[in-house]
Design a protein around this nucleic acid. Structure first.
Lengths: 138, 138
DNA sequence: TTAAGTGCAAAATCTTTGCAAATGT
DNA sequence: ACATTTGCAAAGATTTTGCACTTAA
């Protein structure tokens, strides 16, 4: 029973249930975003598939997690860092998809140079996905 | 019966069927990428849903279209331009998603400045998605 | 003519919804 | 105690597969 996570949930007006704590535990242990199918397997029988959908939805709404759609269209989730909530998800997201192990890394430290937009286009969110080999697979 | 499309199909060892020509016609008329559900509606009864899946898959494999997953995880398709096939899809892709009309624009003309990768990471494909308002909606 | 492509039916997934039972506070 | 959360069952949606029929070349 991790106090930090309990507090995080309570701060967001959420009950600290076993399922929610498991999800937070698993996601926080990874430096890469985790896909919903993989998360599902790791949770095993303990958490119903439907419950997982609802937990992830709730966490996303509260700004606890952010969803990253990978290049296959699969949802991946990662813990939101402070910069996330500060910018209310209107942040720049920089993700690295490993084509070998399919990990998705959130590279929060990186920033894009300013981009010139074509006339008439107004940028709101910038999302950069890079595919390649991650540090473990290259 | 557009000769240009017939030739395109033949160049790729594909038969010029009515369904395929319709798909090419619709996609080529737009400057934005089109989502599979929208494409489906535009084709109406003429093309079976399953056939559309297969056509899009085939076109993607042959490099005639490229698939763009938008921020909702929906597949969008656009004609590949010369730069695409030349680089065998290892190109930089720069897409703009309009949050109002949900159009996806392929901005082939734009190029990203070189990005410094963290040690151990090898970039292969760079995919930049920008969400905001397009020229028609802003 | 005949290999490639299509349509239909049906399976396999993935996601959402409704409601009664269980749980955290 | 009571609102929230979960599990189950079932509906909906999306995507894939198998096979006989059709069509372009």
């Amino acid at each position: 029973m991790n106090e930090e996570f309990v507090k995080l949930l309570h701060n967001n007006q959420l009950k600290a249930t076993a399922s929610r704590l498991s999800v937070l535990q698993i996601i926080s242990e990874r430096d890469a975003a985790i896909s919903q199918p993989v998360l599902e397997k790791m949770l095993g029988e303990d958490v119903d598939r439907v419950t997982l959908y609802r937990i992830l939805k709730t966490f996303e709404d509260k700004g606890i997690l952010h969803k990253v759609i990978d290049l296959n269209g699969t949802a991946n989730y990662a813990i939101c860092h402070s910069s996330c909530s500060e910018h209310a998800h209107h942040d720049e997201h920089f993700h690295f998809n490993c084509s070998n192990c399919h990990s998705v890394y959130c590279m929060n430290d990186f920033h894009l140079p300013a981009l010139a937009m074509p006339p008439g286009f107004k940028a709101h969110t910038v999302n950069l996905s890079i595919t390649g080999l991650c540090k473990k697979c290259s």
